[in-house]
Amino acid sequence: MYFRPPKFITKLFPGFIWSFPEETDSVFLTFDDGPNPEVTPWVLEQLRKYNAKATFFCLGKNVEMYPETFKMILDEGHAVGNHTYSHQKGWSMSVGGYIQDVDLADTFIHSTLLRPPYGRIKPSQAKVLAERYKIIMWDTLSRDYSRTLSRRGCVNNVIKVLRPGAIIVFHDSFKAEKNLRYALPRVLDYIQNVKGYRMRSIEY
């Protein structure tokens, strides 16, 4: 079972980027929650094999702890985005508290791209942040973080709904590592060798 945001949610936030429907031959891989010194280098190696570029939505606290791993992402030519400093759920925070956490992350990440953790952000928070950030959501969620989802199910969550312009979410984290190590090489192969799509980073 894959997750794609329902249409009423996307209509509530029309200024968010959910996909790139104008694209005809490209998809956009994204990785949340890193950098991770054990998982992220492996992800970069897999991407390199397919000449694929991706966007890494990083936690500020992880960039602070692992600056060398963050530098590896940049050196490989990938894009980076802000995923807050400490993986906050916007729904349970004040506007000021959430903005402060995002801004703290920006002191380490320096990106105009933002992805709210869990996709949970209040309209009041989004209104303020949209003045400085492009808010990037997704239309294809691998659910690699799920402890109950099979490794094959993680692959199927992506390939069964894959279409040009899709923004696909994986996670370069310990929690997702088991499913990710199985799913990512198979998804990369399917995207390139079965569908023939390019894999590009998100640029604004």
Rank of each mutant, 00 (worst) to 15 (best):
residue 202 I to T: 03
residue 122 K to W: 07
residue 20 F to C: 02
residue 172 D to P: 08
residue 10 T to H: 09
residue 54 A to R: 08
residue 35 P to I: 02
residue 148 T to E: 14
residue 1 M to K: 11
residue 107 T to L: 03
residue 57 F to H: 05
residue 69 T to A: 06
residue 90 G to N: 04
residue 172 D to M: 07
residue 126 A to F: 04
residue 71 K to E: 03
residue 85 Y to P: 10
residue 17 I to H: 02
residue 6 P to A: 14
residue 54 A to T: 10
residue 34 G to L: 07
residue 67 P to R: 08
residue 68 E to F: 00
residue 73 I to M: 01
residue 17 I to K: 10
residue 203 E to M: 15
residue 163 R to C: 10
residue 86 S to W: 04
residue 171 H to G: 09
residue 78 H to A: 05
residue 143 R to H: 12
residue 11 K to P: 07
residue 171 H to Q: 14
residue 181 R to N: 12
residue 163 R to D: 13
residue 144 D to A: 08
residue 118 Y to N: 05
residue 50 Y to P: 14
residue 126 A to K: 05
residue 202 I to Y: 04
residue 30 T to H: 01
residue 19 S to T: 06
residue 189 D to E: 15
residue 54 A to F: 06
residue 14 P to F: 10
residue 182 Y to K: 01
residue 16 F to D: 01
residue 174 F to D: 15
residue 151 R to G: 00
residue 186 R to L: 12
residue 116 P to R: 05
residue 34 G to D: 04
residue 113 L to Y: 10
residue 49 K to D: 01
residue 90 G to H: 04
residue 122 K to R: 15
residue 184 L to A: 11
residue 172 D to H: 07
residue 144 D to T: 00
residue 60 G to A: 03
residue 160 K to E: 03
residue 60 G to T: 10
residue 51 N to D: 15
residue 92 S to M: 11
residue 125 Q to F: 02
residue 11 K to E: 14
residue 147 R to I: 07
residue 139 D to P: 07
residue 108 F to A: 03
residue 121 I to H: 09
residue 117 P to F: 05
residue 189 D to R: 15
residue 117 P to S: 11
residue 91 W to D: 02
residue 3 F to D: 07
residue 80 V to I: 15
residue 87 H to D: 13
residue 62 N to V: 05
residue 149 L to T: 02
residue 134 K to V: 09
residue 171 H to S: 14
residue 67 P to W: 00
residue 9 I to A: 14
residue 57 F to K: 03
residue 41 P to F: 10
residue 36 N to Q: 07
residue 129 L to S: 07
residue 156 N to H: 00
residue 169 V to P: 01
residue 49 K to G: 11
residue 29 L to N: 10
residue 63 V to N: 01
residue 81 G to P: 08
residue 58 C to F: 08
residue 35 P to H: 01
residue 133 Y to N: 04
residue 170 F to D: 07
residue 129 L to D: 03
residue 109 I to R: 11
residue 12 L to R: 14
residue 143 R to V: 00
residue 15 G to Q: 15
residue 174 F to I: 13
residue 121 I to D: 02
residue 159 I to V: 14
residue 32 D to H: 12
residue 196 G to S: 09
residue 85 Y to T: 06
residue 83 H to V: 11
residue 133 Y to D: 04
residue 69 T to K: 01
residue 135 I to P: 04
residue 181 R to H: 11
residue 14 P to G: 13
residue 202 I to V: 12
residue 200 R to W: 12
residue 148 T to M: 08
residue 192 Q to L: 11
residue 29 L to H: 13
residue 141 L to T: 04
residue 109 I to S: 06
residue 97 G to L: 12
residue 50 Y to A: 14
residue 98 Y to N: 02
residue 159 I to M: 05
residue 90 G to F: 08
residue 25 D to H: 13
residue 129 L to E: 06
residue 41 P to Y: 09
residue 63 V to L: 03
residue 99 I to Q: 02
residue 15 G to L: 11
residue 20 F to S: 01
residue 116 P to S: 11
residue 24 T to M: 14
residue 150 S to E: 00
residue 192 Q to W: 06
residue 183 A to L: 00
residue 180 L to A: 03
residue 45 E to K: 15
residue 198 R to E: 15
residue 48 R to E: 07
residue 113 L to F: 10
residue 180 L to M: 01
residue 130 A to S: 15
residue 113 L to C: 06
residue 89 K to W: 10
residue 22 E to A: 15
residue 119 G to M: 13
residue 13 F to T: 09
residue 16 F to Q: 06
residue 97 G to M: 12
residue 175 K to W: 02
residue 169 V to K: 03
residue 111 S to R: 07
residue 159 I to S: 06
residue 88 Q to K: 15
residue 8 F to N: 14
residue 56 F to Y: 07
